[in-house]
């Protein structure tokens, strides 16, 4: 796929007949709309897009997005998406899901996918709560937060996905806010164009079950890294910014590796030609069989 030469397309082309059924006011609407605009801006054809999600409110996104998609298992969007990319590396692969899906049950795949460095974009709609199961604490819930599963306050610590991603070797680490959609769009386009694994954690407030981390709460706290002169090529500076949580929370590109190492799909010897899924003649040639048999004679 050559994104550089493609013509921008209307975001409407990525809207299917099925409308989203999230709660009115949910942050995920912004995430979806911006994604449709971003892929339109990059001119990626619908049939060249594979959107893979896990399970949860936000993981319903592929059903509301006109492309090829898989609405897979809870926590498993990343290995499924990796399989998709290996099978056809010419497609643009976007994985998405929530904080429970990606940072809770899917945590192992999250770390290893960044280490593996597959060329794909991973959007986490982070609302600091389990919404679809009606409001339990999540890995990104703040300590002390009262939820249905922590009626006396969350006794556990809060996961820092940004610091974790940086430590795991992720080459593109960004954070967005679904309350600032123009800013978010630029993160998406940069992430999709980044030649490796790109993570965008998007604050996408749950209006029904998280009464603590609301749109207003985030609006008061988020600031743009680019306004503060942050250098996204500086890993150490990114780690410092990643630690910020409280009165000031940064959004924008925390880290973008200026010398990205080649992604695993770019290096895999089997993926140097056309997408494997498009190969029509299957099976070994007689010559290949004879060579293999010779090893056993």
């Amino acid at each position: 796929m050559t994104t550089a030469t493609l013509q921008p397309r209307d975001a409407k082309l990525y809207k299917p007949e099925v409308p989203p059924d999230w709660c009115p006011g949910c942050g995920d609407y912004g995430v979806l709309t911006v994604l449709q605009r971003a892929v339109g801006e990059l001119g990626i054809l619908n049939e060249n897009l594979m959107v893979v999600s896990g399970i949860g409110c936000s993981s319903n996104l592929p059903g509301f997005f006109k492309s090829y998609g898989m609405h897979s298992l809870h926590g498993r969007s990343l290995p499924v998406a990796t399989g998709c990319k290996m099978a056809n590396h010419e497609m643009t692969v976007i994985a998405c899901g929530g904080d429970g899906d990606g940072y809770g049950i899917g945590q192992g795949h999250f770390i290893h996918s960044m280490r593996r460095n597959v060329n794909m974009t991973y959007i986490v709609m982070d609302n600091e709560i389990y919404g679809l199961t009606t409001g339990q604490t999540s890995p990104t819930s703040e300590p002390g937060m009262k939820t249905k599963s922590t009626p006396f306050g969350n006794p556990e610590g809060q996961l820092n996905p940004m610091a974790l991603a940086l430590a795991a070797g992720c080459g593109f680490v960004a954070r967005g806010f679904s309350g600032d959609i123009n800013h978010l769009k630029s993160l998406y386009t940069q992430a999709i164009q980044y030649p490796g694994f790109a993570l965008i954690d998007v604050f996408s407030p749950c209006v029904t079950f998280n009464k603590q981390n609301t749109f207003g709460w985030f609006k008061e706290r988020v600031y743009k890294l680019e306004d503060k002169g942050h250098d996204p090529s500086n890993w150490t500076a990114a780690m410092e910014r990643a630690k910020e949580w409280g009165a000031q929370i940064p959004i924008g590109v925390l880290y973008k590796n200026p010398n990205p190492r080649p992604s695993i799909d770019a290096e895999d010897p089997a993926l140097q030609g056309a997408g494997l899924a498009t190969i029509k003649k299957l099976g070994l040639t007689s010559e290949q069989r004879k060579k293999l048999i010779a090893e056993y004679l």
Binding site: V80, H112, I279
Partner: peptide
Amino acid sequence: GKDLGICVRQVEDEIGVANMAIGAGQMGV
């Protein structure tokens, strides 16, 4: 795999293994 054009991945656990294989199968390989 290299000679035969087979993409081979060692994955972090068998949950990832199965999901990756299915993702690939879904794409038509």
